Simulated scan of single mutants.
Amino acid sequence: MRCPACRREHRYTPTSYPCPCGAPLAPPLARGGSPEPITHRTWNEDWVLVRCAACGREDQWPQPELGCSCGTVLRIPVRPVTAPPVPLPVHIPVPPTAPAPRTAFRPVTIRTARDAVTAAALYLKWLGFRDVLQSEARPASGIDLRGPGLVAQVDPTTRPASLRAVECLWLNGLSNSSTSVYFSLAGYTKDARTRGDELRIPLFVMDLTGTPQPVNDAADELIVTGP
């Protein structure tokens, strides 16, 4: 799919989440549909009805989103629930010599700013960071999460994260000899995205399911290698 803001092309696979019946569930994408930039976000919008192909249960799920490298957050169109469900993929056994994979990340639905911080903390623990602590109230430094070798900032606002915010996070990490990680619900301005790349800061965007998505190479590497 192509970003309408910068015309970059992306491959996108929707994240699967567990249905109450235990089967993996992902919203079926509308083939040929055009993604739309998200310019304004509210907590109660962008929910879509999805049917589980295994048990037939219908539930409300957040509409998929994708963070483009230009800083734009895109809303991915989903097929209506009346369309035939997408068949589940065939399971391929993992060779016995393969390393044990991480268990599936279990997100927390984001409805408040505090939920966004909690979701980011859970994700960092899932990546392998230990003793991740949340601040009781947001400090002047903007650092919402800390742990051994870690500082992280979570921006739950409807505005893209700024260049200054990314640089301040980097300085906090530098002064503490820690890895700096940034989470944003509304993406990043172009200069913030560029600066994050230059400073090798992992940048993530979060959708309303509470599942972070990497938007730069540093974030991709963090997912693969861990702390």
Results as ranks from 00 to 15, higher is better:
5 A>F: 08
193 R>F: 15
27 P>G: 05
117 V>W: 02
116 A>E: 07
148 P>H: 05
78 V>E: 00
164 R>K: 11
118 T>Y: 01
220 D>Q: 14
67 G>Y: 05
189 T>C: 09
102 R>M: 09
7 R>V: 15
158 T>D: 14
31 R>M: 13
55 C>P: 07
110 I>W: 00
175 S>Q: 12
151 V>Y: 05
63 Q>N: 12
192 A>S: 08
153 Q>C: 13
18 P>G: 09
114 R>K: 12
60 Q>T: 08
14 P>S: 15
114 R>E: 15
172 N>P: 03
212 P>F: 05
218 A>H: 05
187 G>L: 07
32 G>D: 12
15 T>S: 09
187 G>V: 10
93 P>E: 07
215 V>F: 02
192 A>L: 06
28 P>Q: 03
36 E>W: 03
176 N>R: 07
179 T>Y: 04
22 G>E: 09
20 P>I: 11
47 W>H: 14
176 N>K: 11
219 A>K: 02
95 P>L: 05
211 T>I: 08
221 E>A: 15
160 P>W: 06
130 R>C: 09
216 N>S: 09
204 F>K: 01
223 I>S: 03
65 E>Y: 02
110 I>H: 00
39 T>K: 01
184 S>G: 04
178 S>R: 03
96 P>V: 14
39 T>H: 01
82 T>Q: 11
8 R>N: 13
59 D>T: 14
46 D>Q: 05
13 T>F: 07
133 L>Q: 14
122 L>K: 06
19 C>T: 05
104 A>S: 10
66 L>S: 04
147 G>K: 07
1 M>S: 12
112 T>Y: 07
217 D>R: 10
166 V>K: 02
183 F>S: 00
25 L>Y: 02
78 V>H: 00
18 P>D: 15
120 A>H: 02
61 W>N: 00
41 R>V: 15
53 A>D: 02
79 R>S: 13
85 P>V: 15
70 C>R: 07
20 P>Y: 08
98 A>N: 09
217 D>S: 12
150 L>H: 09
205 V>G: 01
188 Y>K: 04
215 V>E: 01
